[in-house]
Amino acid sequence: MLNHFEITFKSIIRDRIFHGIIFSALIFLLIPSVATLSMRQATELSMTLSLSLISFILLLLSLFLGGTHLWRDIERRYTYPVLSWPSSRSAYLVGKFSGIAAFIFLVALLLGGVAVLTVLITAGIYPPERPIVWNLFFLSIFFDACKYILIVAFAFLFSSVATSFFLPVFGSICIYFVGNASQQVHDYINAPATIGISSITKNMATFVYYILPNFSAFDFKINAVYRVPIQVSGVLMTGVYFVVYLCMVISVATLLFEKREMN
Protein backbone atom coordinates (compact mmCIF):
# COMPACT_ATOMS: atom_id res chain seq x y z
CA MET A 1 0.00 0.00 0.00
CA LEU A 2 2.86 2.32 0.90
CA ASN A 3 4.28 1.34 -2.44
CA HIS A 4 1.20 2.45 -4.36
CA PHE A 5 1.17 5.62 -2.28
CA GLU A 6 4.71 6.47 -3.31
CA ILE A 7 4.15 5.81 -7.00
CA THR A 8 1.00 7.94 -6.97
CA PHE A 9 2.91 10.77 -5.40
CA LYS A 10 5.59 10.52 -8.07
CA SER A 11 3.07 10.44 -10.82
CA ILE A 12 1.34 13.60 -9.60
CA ILE A 13 4.57 15.51 -9.33
CA ARG A 14 5.58 14.57 -12.86
CA ASP A 15 2.22 15.48 -14.32
CA ARG A 16 2.12 18.52 -16.60
CA ILE A 17 -1.46 19.42 -15.79
CA PHE A 18 -0.48 19.58 -12.16
CA HIS A 19 2.30 21.97 -13.03
CA GLY A 20 -0.23 24.14 -14.81
CA ILE A 21 -2.55 24.19 -11.84
CA ILE A 22 0.24 25.07 -9.45
CA PHE A 23 1.22 27.83 -11.83
CA SER A 24 -2.10 29.48 -11.10
CA ALA A 25 -0.82 30.05 -7.57
CA LEU A 26 1.03 33.00 -9.08
CA ILE A 27 -2.28 34.85 -8.75
CA PHE A 28 -1.31 35.25 -5.10
CA LEU A 29 0.99 38.02 -6.24
CA LEU A 30 -2.01 40.06 -7.32
CA ILE A 31 -3.94 39.76 -4.08
CA PRO A 32 -2.31 42.61 -2.12
CA SER A 33 -3.02 45.08 -4.89
CA VAL A 34 -6.57 43.87 -5.46
CA ALA A 35 -7.20 44.10 -1.72
CA THR A 36 -6.59 47.86 -1.84
CA LEU A 37 -9.85 48.18 -3.76
CA SER A 38 -11.65 47.54 -0.53
CA MET A 39 -12.92 50.61 1.27
CA ARG A 40 -12.80 49.42 4.82
CA GLN A 41 -11.61 45.85 4.97
CA ALA A 42 -8.47 45.42 2.91
CA THR A 43 -7.10 42.71 5.20
CA GLU A 44 -10.38 40.86 5.23
CA LEU A 45 -10.55 41.08 1.48
CA SER A 46 -7.04 39.75 1.08
CA MET A 47 -7.94 36.87 3.41
CA THR A 48 -11.08 36.17 1.42
CA LEU A 49 -9.19 36.22 -1.82
CA SER A 50 -6.38 34.03 -0.48
CA LEU A 51 -8.77 31.46 0.93
CA SER A 52 -10.78 31.50 -2.27
CA LEU A 53 -7.71 31.01 -4.39
CA ILE A 54 -6.60 28.10 -2.24
CA SER A 55 -10.07 26.62 -2.49
CA PHE A 56 -10.08 27.07 -6.20
CA ILE A 57 -6.69 25.46 -6.72
CA LEU A 58 -7.63 22.58 -4.44
CA LEU A 59 -10.90 22.15 -6.32
CA LEU A 60 -9.09 21.92 -9.63
CA LEU A 61 -6.57 19.51 -8.16
CA SER A 62 -9.20 17.30 -6.61
CA LEU A 63 -11.28 17.14 -9.77
CA PHE A 64 -8.27 16.54 -11.93
CA LEU A 65 -6.41 14.11 -9.71
CA GLY A 66 -9.46 12.29 -8.40
CA GLY A 67 -11.28 12.25 -11.70
CA THR A 68 -8.49 11.11 -13.95
CA HIS A 69 -6.00 9.19 -11.87
CA LEU A 70 -7.70 5.88 -11.23
CA TRP A 71 -9.62 6.09 -14.45
CA ARG A 72 -6.46 6.61 -16.47
CA ASP A 73 -4.71 3.69 -14.83
CA ILE A 74 -7.57 1.45 -15.92
CA GLU A 75 -7.98 3.05 -19.33
CA ARG A 76 -4.30 2.77 -20.23
CA ARG A 77 -4.19 -0.77 -18.82
CA TYR A 78 -1.55 0.09 -16.24
CA THR A 79 -3.71 -1.88 -13.86
CA TYR A 80 -3.23 -5.20 -15.67
CA PRO A 81 0.17 -5.97 -14.26
CA VAL A 82 -0.36 -4.07 -11.03
CA LEU A 83 -3.59 -5.78 -10.01
CA SER A 84 -2.12 -9.20 -10.74
CA TRP A 85 0.33 -8.64 -7.92
CA PRO A 86 -0.23 -10.22 -4.56
CA SER A 87 -1.40 -7.02 -2.83
CA SER A 88 -5.16 -6.70 -2.85
CA ARG A 89 -7.12 -4.35 -5.04
CA SER A 90 -8.32 -2.44 -2.01
CA ALA A 91 -4.71 -1.85 -1.00
CA TYR A 92 -4.11 -0.46 -4.46
CA LEU A 93 -7.12 1.82 -4.32
CA VAL A 94 -6.55 3.00 -0.78
CA GLY A 95 -2.84 3.50 -1.45
CA LYS A 96 -3.58 5.59 -4.49
CA PHE A 97 -6.24 7.56 -2.68
CA SER A 98 -4.04 8.31 0.28
CA GLY A 99 -1.31 9.43 -2.10
CA ILE A 100 -3.64 12.01 -3.56
CA ALA A 101 -5.06 12.97 -0.17
CA ALA A 102 -1.59 13.52 1.26
CA PHE A 103 -0.74 15.53 -1.78
CA ILE A 104 -3.74 17.78 -1.35
CA PHE A 105 -2.82 18.36 2.27
CA LEU A 106 0.70 19.21 1.23
CA VAL A 107 -0.44 21.68 -1.39
CA ALA A 108 -2.87 23.22 1.11
CA LEU A 109 -0.04 23.64 3.57
CA LEU A 110 2.25 25.26 1.03
CA LEU A 111 -0.43 27.56 -0.30
CA GLY A 112 -1.41 28.34 3.28
CA GLY A 113 2.13 29.56 3.86
CA VAL A 114 1.97 31.75 0.78
CA ALA A 115 -1.44 33.05 1.88
CA VAL A 116 -0.05 34.03 5.27
CA LEU A 117 2.62 36.09 3.56
CA THR A 118 0.05 37.71 1.31
CA VAL A 119 -2.21 38.62 4.21
CA LEU A 120 0.71 39.91 6.24
CA ILE A 121 1.73 42.19 3.39
CA THR A 122 -1.78 43.61 3.09
CA ALA A 123 -2.14 43.97 6.83
CA GLY A 124 1.20 45.79 6.85
CA ILE A 125 -0.12 48.38 4.41
CA TYR A 126 -3.65 48.65 5.80
CA PRO A 127 -3.62 47.55 9.44
CA PRO A 128 -6.86 45.71 10.23
CA GLU A 129 -9.28 47.01 12.87
CA ARG A 130 -8.99 43.80 14.82
CA PRO A 131 -6.06 41.39 15.07
CA ILE A 132 -5.90 38.43 12.70
CA VAL A 133 -6.49 35.04 14.34
CA TRP A 134 -4.15 32.68 12.54
CA ASN A 135 -5.53 29.56 14.21
CA LEU A 136 -8.86 30.17 12.55
CA PHE A 137 -7.16 30.88 9.27
CA PHE A 138 -5.29 27.58 9.28
CA LEU A 139 -8.28 25.69 10.56
CA SER A 140 -10.28 27.00 7.65
CA ILE A 141 -7.62 25.88 5.16
CA PHE A 142 -7.35 22.48 6.82
CA PHE A 143 -11.07 21.80 6.59
CA ASP A 144 -11.12 23.12 3.07
CA ALA A 145 -8.54 20.50 2.18
CA CYS A 146 -10.67 17.87 3.95
CA LYS A 147 -13.63 18.84 1.83
CA TYR A 148 -11.69 18.43 -1.38
CA ILE A 149 -10.36 15.11 -0.20
CA LEU A 150 -13.96 14.00 0.17
CA ILE A 151 -14.51 15.07 -3.41
CA VAL A 152 -11.51 12.99 -4.45
CA ALA A 153 -13.09 10.06 -2.62
CA PHE A 154 -16.26 10.53 -4.63
CA ALA A 155 -14.24 10.76 -7.82
CA PHE A 156 -12.65 7.43 -6.90
CA LEU A 157 -16.02 5.96 -6.21
CA PHE A 158 -17.19 6.99 -9.67
CA SER A 159 -13.91 5.89 -11.28
CA SER A 160 -14.22 2.44 -9.80
CA VAL A 161 -17.23 1.75 -12.01
CA ALA A 162 -16.75 4.20 -14.86
CA THR A 163 -15.54 3.33 -18.32
CA SER A 164 -14.97 6.93 -19.37
CA PHE A 165 -13.83 10.00 -17.49
CA PHE A 166 -17.23 11.69 -17.80
CA LEU A 167 -18.68 10.07 -14.75
CA PRO A 168 -15.73 10.71 -12.41
CA VAL A 169 -15.17 14.30 -13.51
CA PHE A 170 -18.72 15.51 -13.94
CA GLY A 171 -19.99 13.34 -11.12
CA SER A 172 -17.60 15.00 -8.71
CA ILE A 173 -18.46 18.45 -10.02
CA CYS A 174 -22.09 17.65 -9.22
CA ILE A 175 -21.12 16.40 -5.79
CA TYR A 176 -19.26 19.65 -5.23
CA PHE A 177 -22.34 21.77 -5.92
CA VAL A 178 -24.82 19.45 -4.28
CA GLY A 179 -22.66 19.07 -1.19
CA ASN A 180 -22.39 22.83 -0.83
CA ALA A 181 -26.12 23.35 -1.27
CA SER A 182 -27.47 20.42 0.75
CA GLN A 183 -27.61 22.26 4.06
CA GLN A 184 -29.19 25.30 2.46
CA VAL A 185 -31.94 23.28 0.83
CA HIS A 186 -32.55 21.41 4.04
CA ASP A 187 -32.80 24.64 6.01
CA TYR A 188 -35.13 26.08 3.44
CA ILE A 189 -37.47 23.10 3.41
CA ASN A 190 -37.61 22.90 7.17
CA ALA A 191 -37.95 26.61 7.77
CA PRO A 192 -41.24 27.43 9.49
CA ALA A 193 -41.85 30.08 6.85
CA THR A 194 -41.88 27.52 4.08
CA ILE A 195 -45.36 26.31 3.35
CA GLY A 196 -46.89 24.22 0.64
CA ILE A 197 -44.45 21.32 0.84
CA SER A 198 -46.04 17.97 1.56
CA SER A 199 -44.67 15.94 4.42
CA ILE A 200 -43.73 13.14 2.03
CA THR A 201 -41.53 15.50 0.07
CA LYS A 202 -40.12 16.77 3.31
CA ASN A 203 -39.27 13.28 4.51
CA MET A 204 -37.73 12.36 1.21
CA ALA A 205 -35.68 15.53 1.19
CA THR A 206 -34.52 14.82 4.73
CA PHE A 207 -33.55 11.28 3.71
CA VAL A 208 -31.53 12.58 0.76
CA TYR A 209 -30.01 15.18 3.06
CA TYR A 210 -28.77 12.44 5.37
CA ILE A 211 -27.07 10.61 2.50
CA LEU A 212 -25.54 13.51 0.60
CA PRO A 213 -22.28 14.99 1.79
CA ASN A 214 -22.60 18.23 3.69
CA PHE A 215 -19.82 20.57 2.70
CA SER A 216 -21.27 23.55 4.53
CA ALA A 217 -19.85 21.98 7.68
CA PHE A 218 -16.33 22.40 6.30
CA ASP A 219 -16.76 26.06 5.53
CA PHE A 220 -14.97 28.11 8.16
CA LYS A 221 -14.07 30.93 5.82
CA ILE A 222 -16.33 33.44 7.56
CA ASN A 223 -14.80 32.53 10.89
CA ALA A 224 -11.32 32.94 9.52
CA VAL A 225 -11.89 36.19 7.68
CA TYR A 226 -14.02 37.96 10.28
CA ARG A 227 -12.50 36.27 13.33
CA VAL A 228 -15.78 34.77 14.44
CA PRO A 229 -14.83 32.22 17.09
CA ILE A 230 -15.64 28.53 16.57
CA GLN A 231 -16.63 26.14 19.31
CA VAL A 232 -14.21 23.30 19.89
CA SER A 233 -17.10 20.85 19.77
CA GLY A 234 -17.96 22.13 16.30
CA VAL A 235 -14.44 21.48 15.10
CA LEU A 236 -14.43 18.00 16.61
CA MET A 237 -17.83 17.23 15.14
CA THR A 238 -16.69 18.24 11.66
CA GLY A 239 -13.50 16.23 12.03
CA VAL A 240 -15.36 13.11 13.06
CA TYR A 241 -17.91 13.61 10.31
CA PHE A 242 -15.09 13.89 7.77
CA VAL A 243 -13.37 10.69 8.87
CA VAL A 244 -16.54 8.64 9.05
CA TYR A 245 -17.98 9.87 5.79
CA LEU A 246 -14.65 9.41 4.02
CA CYS A 247 -14.32 5.83 5.23
CA MET A 248 -17.85 5.17 4.07
CA VAL A 249 -17.26 6.44 0.55
CA ILE A 250 -13.91 4.72 0.20
CA SER A 251 -15.28 1.42 1.41
CA VAL A 252 -18.01 1.50 -1.20
CA ALA A 253 -15.40 2.39 -3.80
CA THR A 254 -13.18 -0.55 -2.84
CA LEU A 255 -16.15 -2.87 -2.79
CA LEU A 256 -17.08 -1.91 -6.35
CA PHE A 257 -13.47 -1.95 -7.46
CA GLU A 258 -12.90 -5.46 -6.09
CA LYS A 259 -15.84 -6.67 -8.14
CA ARG A 260 -14.79 -4.90 -11.29
CA GLU A 261 -13.67 -6.90 -14.32
CA MET A 262 -10.42 -5.71 -15.84
CA ASN A 263 -10.75 -5.89 -19.60
Binding site: S38, L51, N180, I222
Partner: peptide, 21 residues
Protein backbone atom coordinates in the same frame (compact mmCIF):
# COMPACT_ATOMS: atom_id res chain seq x y z
CA UNK B 1 -25.99 31.02 -3.44
CA UNK B 2 -26.09 27.70 -5.24
CA UNK B 3 -23.64 28.70 -7.94
CA UNK B 4 -21.15 30.23 -5.59
CA UNK B 5 -20.93 26.90 -3.74
CA UNK B 6 -18.10 27.32 -1.24
CA UNK B 7 -16.98 30.63 -2.71
CA UNK B 8 -19.74 32.75 -1.19
CA UNK B 9 -17.31 35.19 0.39
CA UNK B 10 -15.50 35.65 -2.89
CA UNK B 11 -18.67 36.23 -4.87
CA UNK B 12 -19.98 38.57 -2.18
CA UNK B 13 -16.79 40.60 -2.25
CA UNK B 14 -16.71 40.68 -6.01
CA UNK B 15 -20.28 41.99 -6.15
CA UNK B 16 -19.36 44.82 -3.82
CA UNK B 17 -16.23 45.50 -5.85
CA UNK B 18 -18.29 45.66 -9.00
CA UNK B 19 -20.59 48.25 -7.51
CA UNK B 20 -17.67 50.26 -6.19
CA UNK B 21 -15.91 50.33 -9.56
Amino acid sequence: KFLSADQKLLIGSSLVMRVIT
